[in-house]
Simulated assay, not measured.
Amino acid sequence: MPVDETLLESIRIKIGSETTHSLGPITALMIRRYARAIGESNPLYFDPEFARSRGYADIVAPPNLVTAITCWDEGPAADDLRTDGTPKTLQLEGIPTSGVRVMGGGEDMEFHAPITAGTTVVERSTMIDAELLHGRNGQFIVVRYRHEFVDDDGLPLVTSTRKVLLR
C-alpha cells in the first residue's frame, strides 16, 4: 500500500473518533514487575508501609506504567510476533497497517495523579490528527493520538499524545 494522499484520506476519516476500554485494576504485582524491569529501586514502588507513610493508599506505579504497556491481555504467541517483538497482526485504531511500515514517533505525557495498587484504570483514545510529510527517503504519514487514562470515577491520571509514523 503506497503512503500517499489516498491513504492519508482513509486515515483522516477516523479523526475525532474515540474508543474506550477498561485496563482493569493495576495490581501490586504489575507495579513491582514494571519497576524491576525499568531498574527502579524506589520503595514507593515496592513497600506498602513506606507508601502509606508517605500518604498513599498502597504502593505507587512508576508514572509511565500505563503508557508503556501496549497489550493488556496475555499477548500473542512467539510465532505470532515480528522480529521486533510487535504482533504480526498489529492493529491501530483507524490505520490500515497492511503493506506499510509502522513506527513509534514519540510521546508527550502529562501526569495528573499517582496510580496506586488497586486503582482501576480506563483508557480513552482519540485520533486527533494525521498529516502527510516529505522526508529524505520519501513520503510518510504522522498520526497523532490522545490517550487519557482515568480511574473508574473519571479522575484524570495520565494524558499522553503519541505519534505513529507510517512509511
Rank of each mutant, 00 (worst) to 15 (best):
H112G: 03
E49S: 12
R36S: 12
G105I: 02
I95D: 04
E9G: 03
V102W: 03
A61L: 02
L8V: 12
L81C: 09
L29I: 11
V66E: 01
T67W: 00
I69D: 05
A77K: 15
D153V: 05
T27H: 13
H21Q: 15
R136L: 04
S160M: 09
A37Q: 12
L166I: 07
D151L: 04
L165T: 00
G154L: 02
V164L: 09
V121E: 00
G75R: 12
I31T: 00
I15A: 10
E5R: 13
P87S: 01
I128W: 06
A68Y: 01
D47R: 04
T70E: 09
M127Q: 10
W72E: 03
F140I: 06
P62M: 03
G135C: 03
R101P: 00
G104F: 08
E40C: 11
D80I: 01
R82G: 08
P156S: 05
P25L: 05
I59E: 00
W72T: 03
E93V: 13
F46M: 01
L29A: 14
P63N: 10
R144V: 02
L23R: 05
G135N: 03
D4Q: 12
G99S: 07
G104L: 05
T6L: 07
N137S: 15
K88M: 13
E131R: 15
G154T: 07
E110S: 09
G104D: 05
A57M: 05
F50Y: 15
Q91G: 11
E148D: 11
V3A: 07
T119E: 01
H112M: 09
G39M: 11
L157I: 12
I38W: 06
F140P: 01
V122W: 13
P114D: 08
G55Q: 08
L29V: 14
C71Y: 10
L65R: 03
P76H: 09
A57S: 15
E107K: 14
R144F: 05
V102M: 04
L165R: 00
S22E: 12
C71D: 13
E148K: 10
E131T: 14
I38M: 09
T126I: 14
E131C: 06
P96I: 11
R36E: 12
R136N: 09
I26K: 07
D108N: 14
V66R: 02
R146M: 10
S41V: 14
P76I: 02
L7M: 14
T70D: 08
S10G: 09
P2A: 13
L166A: 02
E74R: 14
D152V: 06
G94T: 07
P76Q: 04
T161W: 04
N137I: 06
I38G: 09
M30G: 11
E18N: 05
L133F: 10
